[in-house]
Design a protein around this nucleic acid. Sequence first.
DNA 1: GCGGCTCAG
DNA 2: AATTCTGAGCCGC
Length: 749
Amino acid sequence: MDFASVLNKSEPHQRTIIHLDMDYFYAQVEELRNPSLRTQPLAVQQKNIVVTCNYVARARGVTKLMLVVEAKRLCADLVLVNGEDLAPYRLMSQKIFDLLLNYTPDVEKLGFDENYMDVTSLVELRQAHAADAQFKPPVGHIYPADGTPLTACSCGCAQRLAIGTRIAQEIRDELHLRLGITCCAGIAYNKLLAKLVGSRHKPNQQTVLVSTYAEQFMRELNDLHSVTGIGQKTQTLLQEAGITSVEQLQNCDMDFMRKKFGFETATKLRDLALGRDASCVRPTGKPKTISVEDACKTISVHTDVTDKFRMLLKRLMEQVAEDGRIPIAIKVVLRKFDPQKKSSHRETKQANILPSLFKASVCAGETGVCKVQLADGALDKLLKIIMRLFERIVDLNKPFNITLIGLAFSKFQERKVGSSSIANFLIKKADLEVQSITSLTNTSLTSPTSESSPTAMSGDEAAFRSSPTTFKPSDQFYRRRATTASPVPMLLDNGSESAATNSDFSDFSETEVEPSPKKSRIGRVLVSKRSRLAGDVADTAADVASPSKLRVCDLRLNSRDSEKDFPMSPIAASTSGSSSAPRFRTIQPPNTLVNRIDGSLRFIPARTASRLSSNASSTASSPLPSPMDDTVSAPSTPTLTPALQEAAQAPSVGSATTEAATGDSLAHLACPAGVDAQVFKELPVELQNELIASWRSSLVVAAANAVEQATTSSGSSASADSSSNSSGAGGSSTTTQKNTLYRYFLRNK
DNA sequence: GCGGCTCAG
DNA sequence: AATTCTGAGCCGC
C-alpha cells in the first residue's frame, strides 16, 4: 500500500483555534501607563537596544532590536522608556490571560503577549444552542482576500470558523474595553495557521483562514524562518541542503530529508511547511522556572559579582513571593565572552536548596494572603551557594569576561494557601454565607510560624535534606520529593565525586551540611515540627479527592500535570457539574461555557442598527480610568459609549459584519445589572470578570425566556435598558439561585 | 539529573 | 556578531 499517500493526507479541520497577538506589547503597556505617549514616537529600551516601539516610531523607520543610537538618528524626537523591569508587562500579561480564561480553560501563553485558545467546545455550544449564531457571517479579514468564502471548504469547518471569528471579536472587544489593550487575532483549524494568518493584518485586526487554502497560504510566507518552529539554525541547515523557500520544503525529496535530518525532524519540517500542526493548545500553568538576568558590561571583579547577585536575588524573590511556591533548586547563569573567538556563550550551574530557606508570611491587613519570603539569615546562605556555583563556572584567578549574569529558581513545590484566591477575597469581604455556598472546606490557613519558625529551624536545613528516610511520608515536602525526584541525588549527598558534575548539597556542605550522626537528631526535631502540618496535608488531599467540590484555590497545574491528571475532554471538563475545574484559575460556574452563548443569544432582542458600525476610529484611547492600576480597572457605566466607539475598529471588510455584535454585547460589561457600580469598580479585575461571567449566565436563561415568549419589546432604549431589566437580579429566579457569585453582589433592596 | 542548545516572543 | 529578558523543550551525557 501507498504509505506516502497516508502521510500526505492533510489534517482534518475539526478544531477551532484562535491566536491572539498583542500589538507592540511593551510599548502599548507604556502608552497605557502614560497616555500622552500615544501620539509620540515611542520606543521601549533595554540596555542599548530598542526592544519594541509603537507605530508612530515604526513609521519613522524604527524597528525591533535596533540600536538606540541608530533609532535616535532616524527619529530625533523618539521617546525612550526603559523597559528592563518586566513587572508591568508581566502584570498586564496576567490580566489578559485571566480574562481569556473566562472563555475557556484551554488557553496557552506564548511569551508575554501572545495566547492560543482552543475554542472548539465554545463553538460547538453555540452551534447546539444559539440558533441564530449559526448563520451569522464571519467578522474581520479572510484569507484569501479575493472574496473566497469560508464555505469553499465543505467539510463543515466554515460555520465553526465563522463562529470563531465572532468569538475572537468579542474577546478583542473585551480586552480593549476592560484592559485598554488592542491585539490581532488569527482564526484557523490549527495553532500554526492561526498564528501565521493573524499576522496578515496588523495592528488591531483579525483574519480567518479558509481551510482549503492552508498550503497556498504557507507558500506566500517570505522565508522559512517565518514558519513558527523553524528557527535561525534550522533555516541555515535547510539552506545548506538547498532549500530556501516554503514551497521548496513542501515539495522536498523526503528520502534526502530523512537522511539529512532524521525521520522525525524531516517529517516535522515538511509538515510545518504544509501548514500541518497537530499540536494541542496546552493550558499554561504555573511556570516551571522563574528567572532574572542582567546583561552588563564586562564584569571582572569579585565584589561586583556579589553585588549583582544580591540585586538579582532581590528581584527574583519579589516574583517568588508573588508566585507563592517554594523553589528547591537555584541556577546561576553566565554569559562569557571569548575575545579570541570573539563570540559569547552561556554557561549554567545549578544546586538544590532547602525549603527552609523560605518562609511564608501573612501580610498585615490581608487575611489569608501569604507571601513567600527568605527566612531569617537565608539571604547570606543563598548568596554563598550562588557564589559557589559562580566559582564553578569562573576561575577567579584567571581574567574573565562576563557579559551577563542571571539567576533562576526551579523545582517548585506547591504551597497550600493561594495568595490570590477568589475565596480569600470573599472570606475577607463577605459573610459566612458565601463560604457555605461555595463549599469552602478550604485549606485551613496555616499559621506562618508553624511552617517556618526561623529560630528553631536555622542550621537544621541540611539535615532535613540529607536524611529523607527519617521523615514520615506525611511530610508535605517529602511527599512531593518521593514522587518527583529520583532518590539518587539524595544518596550522593555527601559524595565527593559528585561535586564536579552533580550539584545538590555538596555545594554548601561547609556551611550547611552536618556530619551524619547529627542528622538523625535534627531529623527528629523536624519530624515533630512538621507533623503538625499533617492535618493540613490531609485537608488538601480530601479536597482534591472530592471532585464535586468547588475548588477556589490556585489549582491550575503545570500543563503536563493537568494533562496527566485530568484527561477530560475540554467539553466535559468545562460543562460537567463535577468540573471542579482544576484547570480554571478561578471559580467557574458550572455552566461557564453556556453562559458565553449569551453573547449571541442576547443579540436577538436588542438588535438595532448600531451607530458603532460606521464609526471608524483608529486611534486607541484608554477607556479605563487607569488600566494599569491594580485596584481599579473597570470603567463606570456611564463612560461607555465613547469607549465602545473606539473599541469598534474599522475593518476593511464590509462594515456590516462588524456591526452591533461587538457593541451591544459589550454595553453590559461595565457593571452587571443590579450591582452597585461603585462596589463593582472597587473589585479586583479578576473578580469583576467572574462576576460578569456569572451575571451573563443568568442572562442566558433570561434571553432564552425572552425567546420563548417570542415577544420582543421594541428595541427602544437599547442596551442600557436591557441590562437593567434583563432580570439578572430578581426576575429569573432559577438562574440567580444557581449562580453563586453574582447574587452576592446585588444591591440589597 | 545537568548543562548546552534551540526555539519562541 | 548578535543586541534584551525571559520561559519551554529537546538532546547527549
